[in-house]
Simulated assay, not measured.
Amino acid sequence: MKISMVLAAGNPHVADLSAALIAAGHEVTVHSSDVLETTSADGREPHLGDYVDALRAEWDSAPPDLVHAHHWRPGLAAVLAAQRAGLPVVQSLHGCGRRTDVERLLGRESALVLASCEQEMLDLAAAGVPRSRISVVARGVDVDLFKPHGPAFARSGLRRVVTVVDPSSDSGVGGLVAVLPRLKDAELVVAGPMPPAAADALRGRARRLGVEERVRLLGPVTRADMPALLRSADLVACVPDRASWDVWPLEAMACGVPVVATDVGGLTDAVTDGVTGLLVPVGDLKQLIRKLRLLLDDDTLRTSLSIAAVDRVDARHTWPDVARGVDRLYRLLLDPPQPVRPRSARRSAGGAPAVASQADESCTT
């Protein structure tokens, strides 16, 4: 099968999915462009015309069997470019609610929309995407990179809670700093880029709470170094107030690190409460303190959650498994099953349909 992936530059999820599909025997061409993630100096949305024309020219000369677009800007380019060639378009929006109007349009113009969790499926349907066009495919994890055994970052003498921030979404890191005074023997290690103003505000809050020495802002951590950071943690905390498309909690689980997470979005799919991690209600700082303290203090609980977390990732989230699920949906799209035609009713000798009653089918003595 020939597949064209359309995306903005630098998307590790698509790189891993493409590699898994190639390993399964597919021919995958990746079309990425920086223009899809840039904005002009006056703040206008980037122009997609040249990129759409380039896609059209390539697909006119060498059309794929289908197009799979990722995120809404590449999705829009893919829909516009595929129309002339009549190519089916699959969309992965990787979250919902950023541009509801565009998401609704893409859902209606695409042959299939892939959601990464049950909540995203519900959000897409609520946004107006036809439910019949939505299928759920689990998020993938590179278990060769993210695994329980391997190097780990150096530790201090404190228990370690690790979290990862994303400047494009709420991360809940402010709440983790707020509860740190109640976790006397723990440090909070924050990975990921933060705008200077946000980092200064977080440090100021930590200073006012008297925990500045126990909050470490690492800044960006490379993908290659992330497993070592995760393995250095006693637990990881992912506590956003709103649904997000973070895959790193699954990567932490693959490293054998239990997760404390808020019960929103895909986190409720990733974390089975009391089995692979612990869930807390959004905004409930008392419950957050209690669950963090429970997990930090109970070595046996951490070990049991760790074992179950690795098993869950191995069972549902490896890239070969994800690729098989995506492949099945591709094939159903290109070659849908034919509806079963009802057999005509058996006719009696006189030509009238013979109707079998329950009494006719029962045994008599």
Rank of each mutant, 00 (worst) to 15 (best):
V141I: 10
K184Y: 07
L176I: 06
V190G: 06
R155Y: 00
F146D: 03
G174T: 11
P167I: 06
G219C: 07
A178F: 01
L218I: 09
R203W: 12
R182M: 11
G140Y: 01
I134W: 00
F153I: 05
V164S: 08
P195G: 12
R160Y: 01
L158E: 08
R182L: 10
R203F: 08
S168F: 12
S132H: 11
P167D: 02
P220S: 15
V137M: 07
G140S: 08
V141E: 00
A191Y: 04
P130R: 03
V137P: 03
V143A: 07
L202S: 10
S171F: 02
A186Q: 06
P193W: 15
A224L: 12
R208N: 14
A152I: 01
D170M: 06
A224W: 03
D144V: 07
L183V: 05
V189A: 06
P196Y: 09
D142S: 06
R131E: 12
R159F: 04
L176S: 05
A201Q: 15
P196K: 11
R208V: 14
R155L: 00
D185F: 00
S156Y: 02
S169R: 15
P196R: 12
D170V: 13
A191H: 06
L218R: 11
P193F: 15
E212P: 09
P130K: 01
A198K: 15
A199W: 07
L202M: 14
A186E: 04
S132V: 12
V165Q: 03
L158F: 07
D144K: 12
P193E: 14
T163F: 00
L158G: 01
D200G: 14
V136R: 11
L218F: 08
A197E: 13
L183M: 04
R216G: 05
G192W: 03
L180Y: 03
A152E: 07
V215Y: 06
S156G: 08
P148A: 06
V141N: 00
R216F: 06
D170P: 02
D170F: 06
S168G: 12
R223M: 11
V137W: 00
A199V: 11
L217D: 08
R216L: 13
S169F: 09
V137T: 09
L202V: 11
R207Q: 14
D185Y: 00
L209V: 12
T222Y: 04
V177R: 05
L158M: 11
A197F: 13
V179S: 04
A138R: 14
P148K: 03
S156P: 02
G150R: 03
L218G: 08
V161C: 02
K147R: 15
R208W: 11
A198F: 11
